[in-house]
């Protein structure tokens, strides 16, 4: 069976990405596609991910593949810069990572989001993530009664 060394991915908005097979294999979704069909020079569509997000995800895959010599500290610094992004970008990235099934990337972004939650008051969290407080006064009262065990 002849394996192509390069793989072409097509984003939802039609852009083509030609990348090394090894880079693409970090996505389990693509890995399954390649194993099942073994397309020779074929284009693999990635309908759930747009070009901007896909290029960022591939940037992550490349970094985590090639630099085997880079030590742990350098990775954590690179990762930290990588996830230093707007909330909507993190959302796009995590959805892409979920679709493409890249567990370490999901984990990395979840770590970042969790760090934004830590030690913050609910009001502050709502502000950071634009969450609307949709509780009615009655619900609020009811909740206060029920959750006295955890909140003052």
């Amino acid at each position: 069976m002849a394996f192509t060394k390069k793989v072409t991915l097509k984003s939802s908005d039609g852009e083509l990405f030609i990348i090394d097979r090894a880079v693409a294999l970090q996505s389990r979704t693509i890995q399954y596609v390649l194993e099942d069909t073994n397309p020779v020079d074929a284009i693999i569509p990635v309908p759930a991910v747009d070009a901007r997000t896909l290029s960022k995800v591939l940037e992550y895959c490349k970094k985590h593949l090639i630099d085997l010599n880079t030590d742990f500290e350098d990775y954590s610094k690179w990762d930290k810069d990588f996830v230093d992004a707007e909330v909507w970008m993190l959302y796009d990235l995590i959805m892409a990572a979920d679709y493409l099934h890249i567990p370490p990337l999901i984990d990395l972004i979840c770590d970042k989001i969790a760090s934004m939650f830590k030690g913050q008051t609910p009001d502050k969290i709502r502000e950071i993530f634009n969450i609307d407080n949709d509780f009615s006064k009655e619900e609020e009262e009811d909740f206060k009664k029920k959750s006295g065990w955890a909140f003052k």
């Binding site: 909507w88 993190l90 634009n130």
Partner: peptide, 17 residues
Amino acid sequence: NQNDFISRLPEDILLII
């Protein structure tokens, strides 16, 4: 809210967080 990205994440990912 269109800007509330975080709450739109699927439940399994919210649970990871």
